[in-house]
Amino acid sequence: MAEPAPASDFPGVQLHIVTGKGGTGKSTVAASLALALASRGKTVLLCEVEGRQGIAQLFDVPPLPYEERLLARATEKDHGNVYALAIDAESALLEYLAMYYRLGRAGKALDRFGVIDFATTIAPGVRDVLLTGKVYEAAQRNSRNKNARTYDAIVLDAPPTGRITQFLNVNNELAGLAKVGPIKAQADTVTTLLRSSRTAVHLVTVLEEMPVQETVDGVNELRSAGMPVGGVVVNLVRPQDLDEPAREQLLAGSVDTKALGKALTSAGVKAPMSMVPTLVAEGRDHAERRRLEDSQRSLVEEIGVPTYELPQLAGGADLAGLYELAAELIEQGLA
């Protein structure tokens, strides 16, 4: 009988926001987290807001429209499903006008005249308000929302770390500008959700100096803005092929090359002695890389939030790889 999965570190969180420096694999982590949550029996909405169609590429499906689409169906009876949505500001504004101001055809007419594009370009903050507003709408659904699917969990593939605090705090800034009326009420309710215990902002990094420093800065900015920081996911972790004594010998330059040559021969590796110095040099590079990673790992641990590590996948982040990473997130307690 299989052992039960470890308990989640974030049992009360509905909205999981995933951010990270470009190149750290935040979209891969967001997709894996959505699959992990679905494996716990939840109906999950995986959203993206950057217009890159990263979700479609990861799951090898056609570009996503502004419509919630089934992305991954449960393969076991007790598991949930993953739906996906690519949110764009223009479509979100048209939906907002239709829902709250009943401007169905009038809203489309505004779109034809380019007013919507003008508004979201001239005031970039408006775009972020609309994007976060759509996420809020999906999170607030209940049985009173006619024919609307409700979600146990929402995973947002959010903007990069350098912009995440501004992105999430834009509704609070808007509420400060609009003192009364429906705009202020809407901004206040979105801000309340984003700052509540129902939300967690997870940061993705790799064990390199710049991404780790940006993660540290991002956590400090989020905390200063009153946003709920979740965990830090260390992604693309390389296998550790050397034990401590071997690393120390390589870094100190004290490897016995003759003994190494004999060991290769004993292992059936036919290599001339001239290759041994090259192998030692490669081993030293690996050991130096490991030392750098260990120093960055220590900095991540000092942030003071739960940390998780995902391996670098030999075959890349295909669908099978996403499920592999999802299993890791469940085992380590993020999902």
Rank of each mutant, 00 (worst) to 15 (best):
D9W: 11
D241K: 13
R127I: 02
A89K: 13
L334A: 13
G333K: 10
V170A: 00
L313V: 08
K21Q: 02
K77V: 06
A98H: 01
P4E: 09
T150P: 00
M210N: 03
V229Y: 15
P160M: 11
R73Q: 13
G41D: 02
E301D: 15
R73A: 12
G226D: 06
L168I: 04
T257E: 15
Q240N: 12
A84G: 05
V233S: 08
Q186R: 15
I87E: 03
A119Y: 03
L93K: 08
T192E: 14
G25A: 09
E288M: 12
S298M: 14
T205R: 01
P160C: 12
G315C: 02
A119W: 00
Q332E: 12
L242W: 11
V255W: 07
A267Y: 08
S8R: 13
K179S: 12
D294W: 06
V232A: 08
L93C: 11
L334R: 07
S39I: 02
I116D: 00
A30N: 04
Q240G: 06
V255H: 08
P6I: 04
Q53D: 05
F10R: 06
T19E: 00
K270Y: 13
L37S: 01
E309M: 09
N169I: 01
G230T: 10
N171Q: 09
P272M: 08
E95K: 08
D217Y: 14
D152Q: 05
R102I: 00
A2D: 07
L236P: 00
Y100D: 05
P228S: 11
D88P: 05
R40F: 00
